[in-house]
């Protein structure tokens, strides 16, 4: 399966989706002008991955900041992972970033996937 490897920019997150090495990560800042357009290839990739997933998928979110339009798309990403067996979310937040911790808690309440909360 193809690897998605996007470098982060000042308004888009770093994305690494690599089935072979079992690395699934979204990190950095997410405030693109068109969040739906930015996240569509990621949603497409996850849909294809879901056809033949690894036995276990540890999906890491290590976001410094995301805007509200991105939050809707992050929920779409989580919802698409919900249908795949063996998915766990590692939700990282900076140790003094209560808002990012709370955002992760809210997402965990909206989808049926186990979340692990970690600080960096």
């Amino acid at each position: 399966m193809e690897i998605i490897n996007l470098e982060g920019t000042e308004d888009t997150p770093k994305i690494l989706l690599d089935k072979g090495n079992g690395i699934f990560e979204i990190s950095g800042r997410s405030l693109p002008e068109d969040s739906a357009e930015f996240y569509q290839p990621i949603l497409d990739w996850i849909a294809a991955y879901g056809e033949d997933p690894n036995p276990e998928t540890l999906f890491t979110f290590k976001l410094e900041y995301f805007n509200t339009a991105s939050s809707k798309l992050i929920l779409d990403v989580l919802s698409s992972l919900e249908d795949i067996d063996g998915v766990t979310i590692d939700w990282y937040f900076h140790e003094d970033d209560e808002d990012m911790e709370e955002a992760g808690e809210e997402f965990s309440e909206l989808v049926e996937i186990p979340f692990e909360f970690k600080t960096y």
Partner: peptide
């Protein structure tokens, strides 16, 4: 505000301008 945010994010799709309808709620929360 927290429950309003969760209601909107669950039910709304993005507008044709790409907004989530969450901006004001988020500004009030943050």
């Amino acid at each position: 505000l927290k429950s309003m945010y969760k209601d909107i994010i669950k039910s709304n799709s993005l507008s044709n301008k790409g907004g989530a309808g969450l901006g004001f709620v988020d500004m009030a929360r943050k």
